[in-house]
Structure formats: C-alpha cells, structure tokens
Design a binder for these strands. Sequence first.
DNA 1: TTCACGATTAGCT
DNA 2: GCTAATCGTGAAG
Length: 217
Amino acid sequence: MSLTSAELFATTQQLSRSFFARGTEEVARDLLGTVLVHDSPDGVLAGRIVEVEAYLGQGDAAAHSTAGRTERTKVIFGPPGHAYVYRIYGIHHCLNVVAEPDGTPGCVLVRAVQPLCGVSTMRRNRDSEQRTKLTNGPGKLTLAMGIGMDLYGADLTASRLTVRLPEVPSRLEIGTSPRIGIRKATQLPLRYTIAGNRYLSRSQRAPATRRGRVSPP
DNA sequence: TTCACGATTAGCT
DNA sequence: GCTAATCGTGAAG
C-alpha cells in the first residue's frame, strides 16, 4: 500500500528524544513498525521499518563504537535520536539510529523498510522495479531513499530525516535472530524483524556460514 | 605515507 | 555457493 505524504503525516506522529534515550535493544525492537521519513529534494520518501539490528556500546565486538570514539563514530557517543551514516565497502551507505543517553554508545542499524511513500522515486533511485526488493537491505534502502553522508548526525526528531510513530498501533510478532554479515560476535541474537514480512532482507538465516577455521575434533 | 579491511550487493556457477 | 566492485577509515610506520 502507498500513501500520499499528507496521509502519512496525518496518521503518524513524530517520535520524541526520550524514545531514543533508552537501552539499545529496547529501542531496536520498538523501532519495528515505525516509519522512516526523508523529506528529500525529490519529494517525501518513507518506509515502515521492518528489520533492524542492535549494536551495543559494551560487550559487543561487532559494534563500530567498540574501538572507541573516532571521527567516524563520534555521533554514536553523542545524544540519542541522531543518524549515524557510514559508507561500507566503498560503495554503499548504511543508516543507524543512535540510542542510549548522551555519552553512552549504542546504535540500531536499519536493515529493511517497507516502501510507503515516493515509491516511483525509489524505483528510479534503485533502477529496479520489484517493490519487495527496493529497500530490503541496508545498502538498498539508503540508495532508494536518497540517504547519504550529508545526513550524518541528522536529528531524527527534527530534520529532513525523521522517524514517526503510527497513531494506530499494530500488533507485531517480532522475530529474533543473529546479525547478518558480521565477522565478530556472530552469535548474539540482536537482529529483530517483523516476522513474516515480505520486505525483509532475508526471511531466515542458518547459523553463521562464514568461512574460517573449524576447530579440529 | 602506507595498508588492510569491511554491519553489502549483484551477478554469476 | 562464490566473488568482484570500490574507497574511507584508522592504526601503524
């Protein structure tokens, strides 16, 4: 289903800072079902968040913040509700939502959304037709929605990039599984999905199939 | 200055 | 299942 931007704004409300100023895992789960909105030069682009991953500030070897505060990761250590955007493999961008109170690291990777607004623009941005494959991956959704490094640090409670809560809440069955594509801390169950949603990056994944040494018997 | 690497994707076999 | 594409970041020299 598609919405006009007027319908979108009429049926959702802006999330406040306090929503993001909580534990990363809690924020991650609660982001499912909310709507990511980019008021872009090409019009309003929006998608319902259906898949996320939590990256913890402590005890999580896979999190970028584990190496400490750097130029790239400084926003993760700052106030919650801001965008951590980074480039991966020199090719794609990934979007994270900063969680936890100011000074405490923690963020949530947005891995997939369900297109709601501006679908024709998303098709053009992605040079792809099939609706379910426009935004079903972290690199795909940023391209489809026109999200790049210019939005690094953007305030998700008041900027061109925001997150909004549907006024009519829906009951969600939340799936939990290990995170995808990482080399470290591969077993932690920090990936959350809206179970059975058609717009997920993968419906299910077997336990890490990364190449590497297998311990001898 | 150099260098290894990665929270991905598309297009193969 | 396998791999190329492609480059900013950050640590080391």
